[in-house]
C-alpha cells in the first residue's frame, strides 16, 4: 500500500465520519441528498460481495465493513430517525435513481472483465460510484446556504478520488502487471465531476466567503 492509497482511504473514511457526526450530533441532514446516500449503499453492497469469500487483509475487511455499516446507517438516519428525517428536504432532492442505476447496469453487463455475476456486480459498482455524487451536486446547487460540514463532506469525497488517481499512477510505475482500465476510466470520470465543485470550494476558501454554487 502506497501513501496515496492510504491518504485516499483516510479521506474517504473522514468524509463518512464527518457526515455521520453531523447527522448524529446536530440531528440534521439538511443539504444531504438521500438519493446519493442510497446509491452509495448500493455501490458498497454490490462491490463487496466478496467480503466473506476472498480475504485480502484485515485492513481491507475492516474498511469494507465500515463503509457498508456507515452507508446503511446514514440512509437509516435520514429515512427512519424521528428527528433527523424532519430536516430532509424531499422536494429539493428530486434526482431519479434509475437514471443512474439502469445505464450503469447495462454498461456493466456489456463492458466488464468477465461475465460472471460477481464480476458484473463489481463493475456496476464502479460505474455507479462514478456518478452517485450527481444527486448531491444538484442538491448543493439548489441550496442557497451550504453549511460547512456539507461542503467539507463533498470536498473530502472529491479529494479521496483525486488521491486514488495518484495511487494508480504510482502503482502503474511500481507494479508492472497492475492494469485496471475499467477502474481507471470510471475513477477519472468520477473525479472530473468534482472539478466544478472544487473550483467554487477553493474560491470561497480563498475569499473567505460562504460556499455557494451558481445556479
Amino acid at each position: 500500500m502506497n501513501i496515496f492509497r492510504l491518504a485516499g482511504d483516510m479521506t474517504h473514511l473522514f468524509s463518512v465520519l464527518v457526515l455521520l457526526l453531523k447527522i448524529h450530533t446536530i440531528k440534521s441532514c439538511a443539504g444531504i441528498s438521500l438519493k446519493t446516500q442510497e446509491l452509495y449503499a448500493l455501490v458498497f453492497t454490490t462491490r463487496y460481495l466478496d467480503i466473506f469469500t476472498d480475504f485480502i487483509s484485515l485492513y481491507n475487511t475492516v474498511m469494507k465493513l465500515i463503509f457498508l455499516g456507515s452507508s446503511f446507517s446514514i440512509v437509516w438516519y435520514i429515512r427512519r430517525h424521528k428527528i433527523v428525517r424532519r430536516s430532509y428536504d424531499k422536494d429539493q432532492d428530486t434526482f431519479r435513481h434509475y437514471f443512474l442505476v439502469i445505464p450503469c447496469l447495462v454498461l456493466a453487463v456489456f463492458i466488464n472483465h468477465k461475465f460472471t455475476f460477481k464480476e458484473v456486480m463489481w463493475t456496476f459498482s464502479l460505474y455507479l460510484e462514478a456518478v452517485a455524487i450527481l444527486p448531491q451536486l444538484v442538491l448543493l446547487q439548489r441550496t442557497r446556504n451550504i453549511d460547512n460540514l456539507t461542503g467539507q463532506y463533498v470536498f473530502l469525497l472529491g479529494a479521496y478520488r483525486a488521491l486514488y488517481i495518484l495511487n494508480w499512477i504510482y502503482r502503474h510505475f511500481t507494479e508492472p502487471h497492475y492494469v485496471h482500465w475499467i477502474t481507471w476510466i470510471a475513477g477519472v470520470v468520477q473525479t472530473l465531476l468534482y472539478a466544478d465543485f472544487f473550483y467554487y470550494y477553493f474560491q470561497s476558501w480563498k475569499n473567505n466567503e460562504k460556499l455557494q454554487l451558481p445556479a
Binding site: 492509497r5 482511504d9 474517504h12 466478496d50 476472498d54 485480502i56 487483509s57 481491507n60 474498511m63 469494507k64 463503509f67 472483465h113 468477465k114 463489481w122 486514488y164 495511487n167 485496471h180 477502474t183
Partner: peptide
C-alpha cells in the same frame, strides 16, 4: 485464477 483481476482496493 489468473483471469481474475486482483481487487485489493476499496
Amino acid at each position: 485464477s489468473n483471469d481474475d483481476i486482483e481487487k485489493d482496493e476499496l
